[in-house]
């Protein structure tokens, strides 16, 4: 063993092999992102009578490895909107820092009254994403923005790494678009029916979606963040546990489920 202080905390060469120092210097050309590395899975959101409910689990995966289990993928903006991030976590953290800056700038440039609302924020983020894709240096995220528009009506919109944008009474990214979206559309097929939902109903629908996602999305987990955005502000809970959920039945399953012995 080598006990010199400069070796403290370093992987042992005899176990892991010599460290490849070429990773430390970037002699080569700067590379743009070609693929996401550490990723978050679905974000789901639905509008209701006086706001939007949005949720995402707290897992960040490295490929199929559940790498970080306490990563918060919802972030509030100016106390009035929530952005939910799917996709690359480092790009999410970059956007988070960028949004902090934007919020501070905005708070300083005008003395009172002007804040970017949900619609403004979504437009800005989608422009940023489109700009980066046009530079062939995309931010590898699929975002949902939940907030209110200029008339204090619920606002929900998506933007992805290509700059594609859309709004709908309910939205989901990633696996959620196939697993959660059909559930949500059952309750809110159009704007009119979304405008009839109460907050409690909307929260229940989202929780139901999170449960289905946990059961069927292998890159998900049972701890999640959920936020309710209304005129009164943002109500964000970051350490919710999935209720009435259990994998206990899995013990009894053999093979593909049809096997009995």
């Amino acid at each position: 063993m080598d006990h010199r202080p400069q070796q403290w905390g370093r992987p042992r060469d005899d176990v892991y092999g010599a460290y490849d120092a070429s990773y430390m210097q970037n002699n080569g050309p700067n590379q743009h992102t070609q693929q996401p590395i550490v990723t978050g899975t679905s974000v789901v959101a639905i509008k209701f009578k006086d706001g939007v409910v949005i949720a995402a689990d707290n897992l960040a995966s490295y490929g199929s490895l559940a790498r970080f289990t306490n990563v918060k993928r919802l972030r509030t903006f100016a106390g009035t909107s929530v952005v939910g991030f799917g996709g690359d976590v480092s790009d999410m953290q970059y956007l988070d820092r960028h949004l902090n800056e934007l919020a501070i700038d905005e708070a300083y440039t005008s003395e009172a009254g002007h804040t970017l609302n949900g619609r403004n924020l979504h437009k800005y983020l989608s422009k940023l994403l489109y700009h980066r894709r046009s530079k062939f240096d995309p931010l590898w995220n699929h975002l949902l923005v939940a907030g209110l528009d200029e008339d204090d009506k619920p606002f929900l919109a998506a933007a992805d790494l290509l700059g594609t944008t859309f709004t709908s009474p309910s939205l989901a990214t990633g696996f959620g678009s196939v697993l959660a979206q059909p559930i949500m559309r059952r309750y809110a097929p159009d704007e009119e029916s979304a405008a009839k939902l109460t907050k409690e109903e909307a929260v229940d629908i989202i929780k139901e979606c999170m449960k289905v996602l946990f059961y069927r999305d292998a890159r998900s987990m049972d701890e999640y963040s959920i936020a309710v955005v209304t005129k009164e502000g943002v109500e964000l809970k970051e350490n919710e546990k999935l209720e009435k959920q259990s994998w206990a039945f899995a013990d009894r399953i053999k093979g593909y489920g049809t096997q009995t012995v």
Binding site: T109, S110, E111, H114, L116, N117, R119, N120, K123, Y124, K127, E150
Partner: peptide
Amino acid sequence: RLTYDRPMPIETLVS
């Protein structure tokens, strides 16, 4: 309007 989809706040414009 293009970047934020909002009318320019008057105070910001004047500054």
